[in-house]
Amino acid sequence: MSDRLFGLYGAGGFGREVMPLARSQLGSGWRIVFVETQPHDAKVNGFPLLSEDDFFAAQASERCFAVAIADSHAREAIEKRCTQRGAHALSLSAHNATIYDDNRIGHGAILCAHTTITSNASIGCHFHANIYSYVAHDCVIGDYVTFAPRVSCNGNVHIGNHAYIGTGAMLRPGVPGGRPLTIGEGAIVGMGAVVIHDVEPHTTVVGSPARAITRR
């Protein structure tokens, strides 16, 4: 049995979708487990489910993790705990995810099936891109940003830390070589929204065209 240990935080719906990416990417050279703070079962989809303390108590020559939890602040807190205890964040990418030229993608990213990062994008740590989402050229995306399925993020869009972009949302491109479309830190873009104007930080927008409904 390998003494390299990988833990995927979150055994809910998204975690169960992401685990096959880890299995395919890591192969037989790793022990692979789910991790939750309060495990509800011994196994999930055939993989052991450990508490965080048991994950760190297990003997391992190398210990890595990824976080398949939608709550971006939970992702940040888990990353801090794990790195303090000596584990390293690992990025996961589906075999049919596409990444083109001159992109910078931070650690801990999860790129699900049929996602695309085109060219010259800069993406922070622990980015989630769910199925069929894309990031186009010259986008700048902060840390702990979440794309739900089928997000269309067109060129020259800037997205702040902890923003959440809902299923099927479309973000118009910024001005080529000029002013980007900006989604502020902690903003939420609702399902199916069409964003044609900047979104203020900590604001929720919905509809087509997207309009603010609340500030948090």
Rank of each mutant, 00 (worst) to 15 (best):
F56N: 03
Y164P: 00
G29N: 13
H40C: 06
D53I: 11
M19S: 12
S133V: 04
S28F: 07
H107D: 15
H107F: 08
P180E: 09
G13H: 12
T118Q: 10
I110H: 03
P180T: 08
D101L: 12
D143Y: 09
G186R: 01
S61D: 12
H137C: 08
E52N: 07
D143V: 03
V195D: 03
P180D: 08
A148L: 11
F147T: 02
T83Q: 15
A163H: 02
A187G: 07
H137R: 08
V67Y: 06
I159G: 01
A212N: 09
S24M: 10
A136P: 00
T182E: 11
L111W: 06
Y132C: 13
G168P: 08
R81Y: 00
N103S: 10
L49W: 01
A193S: 14
Y144H: 15
Y100V: 07
A11P: 01
Y164W: 13
G142H: 03
W30M: 12
I123W: 03
G166C: 05
G27S: 13
E62Q: 15
H88T: 15
N154S: 10
Y132Q: 13
A22N: 08
A113R: 07
E17Y: 02
D3L: 12
A113S: 15
F127T: 02
E76R: 14
G184N: 06
A212M: 10
I141V: 12
A169C: 07
G207W: 13
I117P: 06
S208G: 10
T118G: 03
S24I: 04
G13V: 08
G7N: 02
I131W: 04
G106R: 09
Q59G: 13
D198G: 10
